Simulated assay, not measured.
Amino acid sequence: MSEKILNSRYWGIAARGLAMGAADVVPGVSGGTIAFITGIYQELLDSISRIGPRTVTTLFRDGIAAAWREINGSFLLALFTGILISIFSLAKLISHLLEHYPIVVWSFFFGLILASVVPIVRRIPRWSWHCWLALAVGIALAILVSEMRPREVSATPYALFFSGALAICAMILPGISGSFILLMIGIYPRVIAAVHELQFGALGWFAAGAATGLLLFSRLLSWLMHRFPALTLSFLVGILLGSLKIVWPWKLASDTTGDLPGNKLAPMLSNVLPDHFTLVSGQPSYVLGAAVSACAAVVLVLGVEWLHWRHSGKVVQG
């Protein structure tokens, strides 16, 4: 493969990282979903899971270049560069869009997640009762997470470390958002503030926890994907379907949210039908705009899936 092709591939990987970072900023949308529908999820898990004591051995025995190749370093560098650029540059934009165009934005994410089920289902060779059970467990877990209510956690170094570990585990699962988990434990505003204000001490503790959680959880997921692919994929489908409750566009404040700061964020509200939303809130439901936004997301996901299969030379079995 020529250097030109390699460079073009890593530009594409960085672009996927930008999309993953933008998704990870939103409480309710998982960067793992973006990784899956763009065809890099398995490579991401496998690459991260190679980082460990063996990497150190290779580094001292065969040098930096060999260790870099062993962990697929160029792929990880391009991807995480895109993710970090997106998080630091798009956080304010995403917050602005959610504040001023919430229904249209959440409709886009709803269509995005719904359409993401298609490429995962296509990778399940045969549906057994074990797969259906895993699907049900995934749906139940996502709904259970969506029923969590915000708690207050002090932003101590230990809390930031364990929050980072917990968030990254959710972040690489398609369907469960790491930002949503941070919101539920009450530390999301502090993490966003640390990003905006470049509080390097807080960010360092959070990043250390995220790195630790990523290295450990990616090994488990990679092992499951290779050992029990049908069961794992069925579970991920359930996670995606259950998470649709989190990103439903029409929401009203419930009694449990009260006047909590940031209660316009979708995970902290109760789902209602568009007509009921208009009746209670007095605001337009923007059904047409929501439908167009959701359809655009579906077309985008299926288009990306089609391009991925065409590029890989495989035939999609419908």
Rank of each mutant, 00 (worst) to 15 (best):
F110E: 10
I176S: 03
S146C: 01
S2K: 14
N271W: 00
L269H: 00
N271I: 09
P125Q: 14
S218H: 04
G289L: 05
V237I: 12
F36W: 11
G186D: 08
K251I: 08
K314F: 09
I185M: 13
A194G: 15
G242N: 11
V298T: 05
W223G: 01
A19V: 07
S30G: 09
S146F: 01
A194Q: 07
G21T: 06
G12D: 02
I13F: 02
N271M: 04
L90T: 11
L198P: 00
P174V: 05
L141E: 03
G303C: 10
D275C: 00
G258E: 12
T256C: 02
G201E: 14
A66S: 14
S177C: 07
G52Q: 07
G63Q: 11
L79H: 08
T257N: 11
A22F: 04
F235V: 06
T33H: 08
V121R: 12
L220Y: 07
H226W: 01
V145C: 03
L307R: 15
S49Y: 05
L216I: 15
L215T: 04
I143H: 01
A165C: 02
Q283P: 00
R16D: 04
F180H: 14
I192D: 01
W129C: 08
I176H: 02
S254A: 15
L244Q: 08
R151N: 03
E147W: 00
C295L: 15
H311Y: 12
K92G: 02
V301T: 06
L241F: 11
S30K: 07
S2P: 12
Q283F: 05
G242H: 08
L166P: 00
R9C: 03
L279D: 12
E147V: 00
W205L: 12
L18Y: 01
E305N: 14
Q199C: 04
Q42D: 13
L112M: 12
A294G: 13
P229D: 08
L214W: 06
Y10H: 15
G73W: 06
A66F: 05
M20E: 05
F36C: 08
L183E: 09
L279C: 00
L269M: 10
G186P: 07
L215P: 04
L59K: 06
L76K: 08
F180R: 01
H308N: 15
S177V: 05
V137R: 01
I139W: 05
M268P: 00
L114Q: 07
W223N: 02
L231A: 13
L233S: 11
Y41A: 06
L279A: 14
E99G: 02
L224R: 03
W205F: 15
A23F: 02
A294H: 06
H308E: 13
A142P: 07
T81V: 13
G164D: 04
L79V: 09
W129G: 14
L114A: 15
L18I: 13
L269Q: 13
K251R: 15
R126T: 14
L59E: 09
H311S: 14
D255K: 11
N263R: 14
S74K: 15
L244N: 10
S86E: 05
D259H: 13
G39F: 06
V118S: 12
V287F: 06
G21H: 06
G32T: 10
V104D: 01
L203F: 09
L76A: 10
R69T: 08
G313T: 11
E147A: 00
I181R: 02
I172Y: 04
R61T: 15
L98P: 01
G201Q: 13
W248A: 09
S74C: 06
W250D: 10
R69W: 00
G111E: 09
R61S: 15
